[in-house]
Design a binder for these strands. Structure first.
Lengths: 347, 347
DNA sequence: CTGAAAGCGCTTACAG
DNA sequence: CTGAAAGCGCTTACAG
């Protein structure tokens, strides 16, 4: 079961002994430090190879203050499996793969939104990882800034705009996403367009709403507040939101822009439950381009965002920050594009 | 950006100083060791609290050989984002959440299938984590046994049957899954039933196939090898598989059991491309019960397996193994149940 | 170019 | 009940 004792761990001491040098010399040789005779270095390397030596990263970390571990922090409601958005899973996989390829380790930390400050600060102070990638935080900017100021390890915040100059971020052009989605609906003849995804204080929601409004303004469509419905960006909020929408508005909209794809999935459920059909009664567009949208009851038109690339950039950025050679801009904003399927009808 | 120097880390030394005791006493007090005067312990705890002391897990790990980190190992083809099965993502989240709740950390390790042995052994030897949870390994039993014998940390293998007595595992009753799926098709009047999901040497595939065959035998349906199609359990293999099936069989089957849901998704794509319809031309059943199957073009009937619970059990098992108090059986087999939707037609 | 010493932050025997 | 010492596996000045 667990043959913990079977095999003695090989340490640098044994390597040094086999190579016939001091431990410090072995260390210098293995780390390619200047001032080690080539032949000595070779001897040490061969000994290490022969013994199958792998340095203990924590012993290294203790002295170098670098253990090559990076935490991906996921915050969400305090229920068992709160990360239900496949878009975030793409990011997680992309970050992990990129880190692993560069000899870094990825840690996953799932924390409750309601104790985010405490959990993040504790995580950083524990020194368990060398950097933080905040993937799903919704903490307001000012509080998040306070949190990140408190901690002493590098961090990068994903998919949030509007953070202050000192906080590294990689995000989407969320306003443009909202604009593109809404404009596409308008181009298809829609004028009564609802937005399900209002979430005050949360950057992506506010920006997507701003893009929605901008597209409306450009098309001379009057803004109707009854067409703007709150949603928390989890699936059920789409279902609840569309019910609320159909109940509260005086003129039923002909199209809905859902804040993201899983909200759109909820909207789809709600529309079916109401006995309406997409896109004949209501057109629908989402955001994210999660997998298999083409296999849905109605294949969903959406705004596709480059989550894999975003994760890759995030991984490279934190590695650079840790190693002190990060050359990338403090803020990166990535562009999205529409992926047309058949949930929007031209009217 | 990275105010690494701003804040001095607080160590047990400062705690001891503030409490006016020796470092060893502080350690004993903090760890609740016997033989510390209550008043001393209180002094130390207060000092720790005041200074916001968090012990360095790696310094602890170095002496205790327990850093409370567990690696979830995902192997797959050597492409960027190979874990595409939402069922595995449920497991990952469930494991992580459970570990985090118990003060453990979860590490994600994505390795290439073609260098699995090397990567696993190296991971274990690096002492970077205290235990391994192998989630997606397909390495044949004998090789996997050899690998796990080589390593000196506890490990548990998920969703694999037939491993030897000494290797901890938590799995599904895959034969029963195959049996239930096939039996349900038979009960609905089908006799020409295909299985897309043959993958020799991979436990889940072999067992599901065995269950399929058993259901056939019980119903006196002759086994037709041209109805058994290989698939690698990624989505595209379903698409390829159903094409192959329709090309090679003399009598078109009336129903297909796909090895898992994402294969079923591929099959669905293929059937649509061939101009056929589900369930009118061909009935389809999958396995896993991944999210949102009810929103597909044809809502997919499937075998639901308890992945969240499985992940929870796996986390508890490795924690127990690490702490030396694991009471759970070395092998756990979980039961699955059918979830009826509308992709199977009664004929 | 090499090695002995100190130290990273902790815990564990062991004196007292 | 408390504290000084040794040690976990490493690296980094610093003598020589």
């Amino acid at each position: 079961m667990c043959n913990r004792e079977l095999e003695q761990l090989v340490t640098i001491k044994e390597v040094a002994k086999l190579a016939g040098v001091a431990v410090s010399t072995a260390s210098n040789a293995l780390n390619g430090k200047y001032g080690v005779k080539a032949s000595t270095q070779k001897k040490v390397q061969e000994a290490a190879k022969k013994l199958n030596y792998i340095p203990n990263p924590y012993a290294q970390g203790l002295v170098k203050h670098n253990n090559r571990i990076i935490s991906m922090v996921l915050s969400g409601p305090n229920s068992m499996n709160f990360i239900t958005n496949p878009a975030f899973e793409e990011i997680i996989k992309s970050v992990t793969r990129t880190l692993n390829r560069h000899g870094y380790q990825a840690m996953l930390n799932m924390i409750s939104s309601d104790e985010e400050e405490e959990a993040i600060v504790k995580l950083a102070q524990s020194q368990i990882s060398n950097a933080l990638i905040l993937i799903t935080t919704r903490t307001p900017d000012d509080i998040l800034e306070r949190i990140l100021e408190k901690i002493s390890i590098p961090s990068v915040v994903l998919i949030r705009n509007a953070l202050n100059k000192d906080i590294a971020s990689i995000s989407l052009d969320n306003k443009d996403c909202g604009y593109k989605a809404t404009k596409y609906l308008i181009e298809n003849g829609h004028r009564r367009i609802a937005f399900i995804g209002e979430l005050p204080g949360v950057s992506i929601a506010e920006e997507r709403l701003a893009g929605y409004r901008q597209a409306l303004v450009e098309a001379n469509i009057e803004f109707d507040p009854s067409y703007v419905i709150p949603a928390d960006y989890y699936q059920e909020s789409g279902l609840i939101g569309v019910r609320q929408l159909l109940r509260q508005c005086s003129h039923k909209p002909t199209a809905i822009f859902a804040g993201n794809d899983i909200v759109a999935l909820g909207v789809m459920e709600g529309i079916v439950q109401e006995g309406l059909s997409i896109p004949d009664d209501i057109s629908l567009i989402g955001h994210d381009n999660i997998p298999n949208l083409h296999l849905l009851k109605v294949s969903l038109t959406t705004i596709a965002s480059p989550y894999v690339e975003l994760g890759r950039l995030a991984a490279h950025k934190v590695m650079g920050m840790i190693e002190g050679n990060d050359q990338t801009p403090i803020h990166t904003v990535m562009q999205s594009e529409i992926r047309v399927r058949s949930s929007v009808k031209s009217i």
